[in-house]
Write a protein that binds this DNA or RNA. Sequence first.
RNA 1: GCGGAGGUGGCGAAAUGGCAGACGCGCCAGACUUAGGAUCUGGUGCUUUCGGGCGUAGGGGUUCAAGUCCCCUCCUCCGCACCA
Length: 837
Amino acid sequence: MPYDFSSCEDRQAIETKWQERWDTAGCFKTSTDPSKEKFFCLEMFPYPSGALHMGHVRNYSMGDMLARFLRKKGKNVLYTMGFDSFGMPAENAAIKYKTKPHDWTLSNIAYMTNQLKRMGYSYDWTREAITCLPEYYRWNQWIFLQMYKKGLVYRKEAPVNWCPTCGTVLANEQVQEGSCWRCHTPVVKKNLNQWFIRITDYAQELLDDIDKALDPGWPRRVRIMQTNWIGRSEGARLSFKVPELDYTLEAFTTRFDTVYGITFIALAPEHELVKKMMERMPQDEADKLREFVAKTTAQSSIERSDAGAEKLGFKTPFCGTHPVTGKPIPIWVANYILIDYGTGAIMGVPCGDQRDFEFCRKYGIPIIPVIKPKDGEDLDGATMTHAFEEYGIVCNSGRFDGLPTEEAIPAMIDWGEKEGYCKREVNFRLRDWLISRQRYWGTPIPFVHCPHCGVVPVPEDQLPVLLPEDVEVKEVGHSPLLDLPDWLATTCPKCGGLARREADTMDTFFCSSWYFDRYCSPGDTQHPFEKRDVDYWMPVDQYIGGIEHACLHLIYARFFAKFLTDIGIASAREPFTNLLTQGMVIKDGAKMSKSLGNVVDPTEIVNKYGADTVRLFILFAAPPQNDLDWSERGVEGSSRFLGRVWRCVADNLETLRAHGGHVIPMEGLRDPALRDFKRKIHTTIRDVTRDIEEEKQFNTAIARLMELTNAIYALGAEGAEADDLRREAVDVLLNCLSPFCPHVTEELWEMLGHDRMLCLEPWPQADEKALVQDSVTIVVQVNGKVRAKLERPAGLSREDLERGVLSDPAVTEKLAGKETIKVITVPNKLVNIVVKG
RNA sequence: GCGGAGGUGGCGAAAUGGCAGACGCGCCAGACUUAGGAUCUGGUGCUUUCGGGCGUAGGGGUUCAAGUCCCCUCCUCCGCACCA
């Protein structure tokens, strides 16, 4: 009993049938096989929040289409899935639903796995990685210890980003526009003792490889975002002696050419010297300073970092000695100085820096002009209205007067280094990665605190440090681990005495920085992964995911790749060769979100139209990088197209079956209509292949398959030849459509009598002979305007074409009474006649 | 402020410097039908005195020829933002 494709139930039945067949036959199982050319197709794995959303469906439909396409192209494709399953939402859900993070997470994983399977994605499920399971996170701990051994892990008390809502600290990358990336609460600075990873040791390489290794595989946009995020600046560090306090104060500058213009020094309120100064100040003055510091540090990051915000300063009674002139320079404390950039102190040059300028004008600090415009007048410190920040000509700077900035900077730094005034320095905006979180649902940091030995790593043979699963989460911001004395209490690996476990867990971005390596060696119990496997599979050939990870996951994962090769367990210094950043799924002008109530549940749509339709629509409606407007009308259009495909096979099944295997070569065809049809089949193969492979334009690839379908319907010819061609066209159509819509095409393929499953069928090849055109439409322009179109045999020489066109009555008529000045001829395309009169 | 991407029909979008609007949605008309939110066929940028004229944010330029290349302006979106 054949299926009725117009019925929802039958569409579901077809999809279930083929999902089971593929599974039984193990079609998508992959193994490391160096004799075959590999392709690692990777998608950003989901957080198991409860259910798939359309963004996931879009991401994974692209990946699955590519994976299926590349298998057909003969590649050994690694394509699998996992779950980034540690993280805060599980704790919040546990409180809300009175469950346990572990149970909530695993049941979500089960549900979402089922959803993924219903989409027909061709994952090798035997390679799945779930980060919240001990067999995975023990290797987080192991890698963390390797980093510790290499000196990349340290603990430090520092002003860090604190999200009051989440009750935990955040890495710099996780603060977006001054707010928590998860809950959007404004972040405040808090002085806390935290765990850091020295990602800044890799800043230069992370930066260099953006241009060396990621161009052109990564979108320009992401490369620029990372470049800016890493933020390299070259300059010099200079020091001011503060004799009264017996202290040497350091400041970083990119404009050492303006040292002669220093009229004040400013410190961040958090600077260590501030406390020292208070101790040496009269009580009432010290109190005022303390009050000032309290007021400025209480500002949220948003207030502090707003360039338009008022600059506030406090003048201390102390001075630093100008390293070059020896003059005393007053030290101020100012709210606009950031503790975590450079040294947390600056040399104030009001003439060349707008911020310093505003500060000086407000507090009556003098302005010394040490630079002037290249072709303008000298500046006057008393009357200038804003700083001159561009490059110009140095003045009032001793023997450097008259030098342009470009030359002055290196010359003055050279001199300063020789005289001991300064030292060349490169500064990065990138900060070390704050890795510890005051949360329960994460990888335990494998350290213990011993009263005698201090902070001691857990020996590797004692890994994993298991996270207790049977716990009750009572309130946000309080880790239940702190209420588990039996878990907290342990012995010191060094002295054997009583010690306390570290109760902080790792940032979940640690988990997601190497999961793709784990995909290469699933189930390895001795290592995080085997070198042989990652050497074969890595780097990832195509990575697909959202742009929101440009300066988060995508930086951390790059750092990991470099570290893992440095310790010799991997070889790819860059993890992702090609990156595709897909746009958002939009509805009613906004990103789908629960709060806006514009969410469309993928499962509902799949129930109504089938997975094939959803996959087709989501790839057809927009190019991958664009935002995609969800429209149920559009989904219906895709459904309609699949109906057309179905009927063009099912309604002619007998004839089509009878004409299998009879591919007529182009040379064997006389009828121009049939030759055109044959050509259409093969240009479709050529163009679809190029769209997928080179252009990554899945929408136009689908459009071409729609054109082929239209051509099949439009072919009026009858007879054996025509039927042979129809069969050829249908075979090509189904094969090319199958990566997009694997189920319906597989069913039709079987109905046509093929023995082998379509997913195993090689991708068709365009026959060069069938691509050649018999005739071409020549556009005839007069002065650049189209005046005629002529059919001419393809391949005419420039001369023959021009002669023929110029003597054609349709053309001579247009040229009557005009003088031809020039003729431009493009063979097979166009003749443009330039005339006068 | 700095940096990036973009602006094409009613809508989503196509166009190696060479016929602007492929493909789809919507809309209009027709066919089949008891019926149509099924299916099929045709039409669908604006304008027109039916020759044509105009049209890719606006203005200028290069070119035989510009959505595409160059310059200026405007607008939208995105990232970073007191980074010394």
